[in-house]
Every structure is written in structure tokens, then in C-alpha cells.
Nucleic acid binder design. Structure first.
Lengths: 217, 217
DNA sequence: GTGGCATAGTGAAATTTTTAACAATATCTT
DNA sequence: AAGATATTGTTAAAAATTTCACTATGCCAC
């Protein structure tokens, strides 16, 4: 665990660090060895100071007059985020979205290994998806005790999200990513993140409406 | 278009309005007719003042001493966001995620109708998914001129995101929701939203690491 | 080794966003 | 119809976040 100079780190900073990693990986692939905060900022669409400030929460990674070594910075950020290990994940709710996540290679590539898939639909139980057998949700707590699982993904319909969350909590999970469009209750020491891309579509719809009103289009 | 009392509305407000709509719909289904900012705030996990403030950007929807009429407020917010109409959408990139979105009913339910699916992979072209034939991406501009399309969804791999964006821009699209983990360039009058749930997994991983360091777990 | 240059790190200022406090007002009770 | 009550809309304060401006420092040329 790297030393944290300040105790609380803004959520927005974490979100941007993820973007920095993404861009740094791109640069690495293109053979870029060193990057300045200004260049990285341009690539990420943010302010250079913001990058330096964000990084300052975790330590000093740059060389004055030179910039940041791409590989080193990327590794340092990943370590700061806790991505220098793999995370075992279970998924609850094998609908369209759940299936897509199970098949989507990006999770594994990023170090999140889906080790269990659960659903309460008898027609889905027993089905095999991406090498995983779908198991009855009620067996989740028992099953996950066998594995070392820290994160749960909820991809159920909204009305079953809380039940899925309860199973996950019972299993002693420490973090939840909830794709269902519903708030869920969890103790404060369990980290809950909400994902709902409909919000982004709403945002775009709103922006278009605004732009039209302003006569920009 | 409702009157906007202030010209600039925070992005965060728009994002929360989407949550309010979600919760209001839940309440409507449960037969709740009236709700106070406090009750709605609890349901959404935000501060009551925040709700009143957010709504104030668009007008006055409540009744002092009473609260908000659930149905009316929901409709008013949807109108404010530009959701009182349907939006035609095209999707570029028919991978796992693209397929899931095509099959996922939630887009249509929310008023976003996918009217075209595009991909550059010859093996995918001609395939039919959810009643749509996959068309070669290069034909996108010509095809979308036939339809009235305002929003494009990008679900290609990151290295093809910009090309997809270029096709969309050529087609005169006014807003883009980009699921590919890559920044894209677009003129400022085109609204671009980025969706990447890996960020949320990163966030959860970071929070868990932090909580562990703090000894909360 | 000295000077010049480039750029990170940082403290302060500016901005934005959130929260609190309160005045305004609609409804209900008597 | 007057007063009590509840809860909005709004103003002001507080908090958080972002940006600016500057200082510190490492590298390179000479």
C-alpha cells in the first residue's frame, strides 16, 4: 500500500486515474517512454495541474524538467488503485447484460476474474457460459465461501437487486458493482458502485436538446 | 422546452435527475401519489436540499407544505431532460457488448430506438440481431441519412472508436455515447459521453484496499 | 561545473458544488 | 377565517474541487 499524503481522496480523482492508466497503456503500446503532464492532460481531456494534483495524493512519480516515465507511472497508479493483484468476482443475474459481461474479455484482462455466475431462473441454472456453470442464487453464500471472492456484480432486474445484494453481503463480499437501476442498502464498510449507462444517454439527449435550444445545431 | 432559470446546469445535476426519475417510477408503481424532497432524497441517497436545488434549475414543481406529486414531477423532469420524445439511435460495433445492448429492452423502454447496427467485420455483416440486419460501417453515413438519427452508440474496440466516431459525425449525428475505452475527438457542438464500467470496478477495488488499510474489514 | 531550460510539485486563489438555514406559502384544523 | 403545520423555493454559508501561479529541481549544453 503506497503512502497516502492526504487521508481522503476525491472520487473524481479515482475515476480520472482510471483514464490515465488507459491512456498510458495506449502510449506504452505506441512506444512512448516519457510523457509530460501537459501531453497526458491533452490525451485525457483534463487540465495538466489536475493530473499533477491527482498524482500528488499518492506520491511523487515524476522527474522535474523531464516528465513521467510512462511504464513506471502506469504501474504506480495501478498499485495505488489496488490493481497490482487480481480480484475474484461473482456475478448475479444472467440476463443479456450478465452474459455480455461473462463473455467480455476486458474484465479478465483488467484483473477481475469472474469465478461464479448465479441466477434464480430454473431455466438458466445449469447452463454453461464462458466456461462457468450458472448456479442457483440461493447457493451463493455457501459457494462463495469456497472461493476467495471480494467483489460482486449485480446484473439482475431492479426488483431483485436488493435480494442479490443480500446474498452477496451474506457471503461476506466487500464491494458491489450494481448494474441494476435500483438503489441498494449495504453496510458502510461495503463499497457500492452504481453503473447505469441510461444516465449517459439521458445526458446526451439533454445536451442535444440544449444545443438545439441555443441554436448551435 | 421548459424555461431554464440559470443558463448552465451542472452535469452532476443531470445525472441525479436520472436517478430521481428512476425512483419516482418505482414509487408510481407502488401507488405513491405524493412525495416530499426528504423522502425522495432518502430513496436516492442524496441530500433533500440537493433535490430542491436540482429541480429549481428547471422550474417550480412542488407544493409547499405538501411535497411533489409523483407523476407530475416525473413527467416534468423527463420533459426537462428531453425525454418526452423518442430518440433514434444507431450502434457501431456488434461485439458482446453491442449485441447485449441491441437485445437489452431497456433502451427502447426509455425511448431510445436502435434503428441501425453497423460493423466492419465481414463475418458479422448480414447477421440479424434483435430484428436488425448488421450493415457495413462504411455505409453508415449514407444509411443514416435515410433515417432520422440523432445519437450514435460506439461499442467497437478502442482502436476503432475514432473511425466509428468519424462515420457518425459524417452522418450528422448530434450526440455520441462511447463505450470503447478511448477518448474520441468531436466538434464541440456534438455531445460525447463516455461509459466505462471498468472505472467502477477500479473504484470498488480501490475502496476495498483502502478499507482494509484502515482496518475497517 | 555553471547556466539555461523544461517541467514536476505545491500553496493559494478561483470556481463549483453541496449543505444548511430560513422565509414563503399551501393545506388542514378548529 | 385564523392559526398551526408541513414543506417548498431560495439565499447564504460551507465544503470540495479545479485551476493558476510560482518554486524547486533535474537534465543538458557548453
Amino acid at each position: 500500500m503506497p503512502h497516502l499524503k492526504h487521508d481522503r481522496i476525491p472520487r473524481a480523482t479515482i475515476s480520472r486515474l482510471a483514464i490515465y492508466v488507459q491512456e498510458l497503456e495506449g502510449m506504452e503500446q505506441q512506444g512512448v517512454k516519457v510523457v509530460s503532464s501537459e501531453k497526458l492532460a491533452n490525451a485525457c481531456g483534463v487540465n495538466p495541474s489536475q493530473i499533477r494534483k491527482d498524482l500528488a495524493y499518492f506520491g511523487e512519480f515524476g522527474v522535474r524538467g523531464v516528465g513521467y516515465y510512462v511504464f513506471e507511472l502506469k504501474e504506480a497508479i495501478k498499485q495505488s488503485l489496488g490493481l497490482d493483484k487480481t480480484w475474484n468476482v461473482v456475478l448475479v443475474g444472467v440476463g443479456n447484460l450478465g452474459r455480455a459481461l461473462l463473455r467480455h474479455g476486458v474484465l479478465r484482462k483488467r484483473g477481475f476474474i469472474i469465478v461464479g455466475a448465479f441466477d434464480c431462473d430454473p431455466f438458466k441454472i445449469g447452463e454453461e457460459i464462458a466456461g462457468l456453470e450458472v448456479i442457483c442464487s440461493s447457493k451463493l453464500p455457501a459457494k462463495t465461501n469456497e472461493l476467495y471472492v471480494e467483489i460482486g456484480i449485480i446484473t439482475t432486474p431492479p426488483e431483485r437487486a436488493q435480494r442479490a445484494a443480500n446474498y452477496l453481503l451474506e457471503a461476506g463480499i466487500k464491494g458491489i458493482v450494481n448494474f441494476a437501476p435500483a438503489r441498494i442498502n449495504a453496510p458502510s464498510n461495503v463499497s457500492v458502485e452504481y453503473v447505469d449507462f441510461i444516465h449517459n444517454l439521458f445526458s446526451v439527449a439533454f445536451n442535444i436538446t440544449q444545443n438545439q435550444a441555443k441554436g448551435l445545431i
